[in-house]
């Protein structure tokens, strides 16, 4: 079991990443809080050492995505929340920011995930392929589709 110092550091270091991943999957504050705690509880009990900070971060991403998927699998049909209710989770954003976020969140789930991990976390397609356990070509395709969808709404050029 990890010490209080370790878990507190992890909450500070990876809290934002976990929160954002939850948001692009869950769209609901209560579920986000649940998954957020679940992920760090798993970390508390995960005794194996990590090879590096990158390794640790990848572990958090994988665990968060799996936890979200588990939750969606059991609650999806009953608990889908309309996009409009999302505002509660994005209070920090300005008007334009909200529009961008709404656009990203309107993408199919697979695309949302790679958009966040690629654009924000900076993972390349081969890295995403390892992280998500998918074929690298599938990742390229998903990314391309996501870009096309985003461009339709947001316009402008992308550099990814």
């Amino acid at each position: 079991m990890r010490s209080e110092e370790e878990t507190n550091q992890a909450v500070e270091r990876y809290g934002d990443t976990v929160r954002r991943l939850c948001m692009i999957h869950l769209k609901n504050e209560a579920d986000t809080q649940d998954i957020f705690q679940t992920v760090f509880l798993k970390y508390l009990l995960h005794d194996k050492p990590f090879e590096s900070g990158e390794h640790e971060k990848a572990w958090f991403i994988r665990v968060t995505l799996n936890a979200c998927k588990d939750l969606l699998r059991s609650f999806f049909s009953r608990n889908t929340v309309p996009l409009e209710q999302l505002t509660g989770q994005a209070d920090q954003l300005t008007g334009q920011g909200r529009e961008v976020l709404a656009t990203v969140l309107a993408l199919p789930q697979k695309e949302r995930q790679v958009v966040y991990l690629h654009y924000y976390e900076g993972y390349t397609a081969p890295e995403l392929s390892r992280l998500l356990g998918k074929n690298v070509n599938t990742i390229y395709t998903t990314l391309a589709r996501a870009r096309a969808h985003l461009r339709e709404t947001l316009g402008g050029e992308d550099h990814g």
Binding site: D16, G97, V104, Y119, G160
Partner: peptide
């Protein structure tokens, strides 16, 4: 577009 996306996620904590 990339920048916008990065900015938006950067504001979420």
């Amino acid at each position: 577009m990339d920048e916008q996306i990065r900015e938006v996620f950067g504001q979420l904590h």
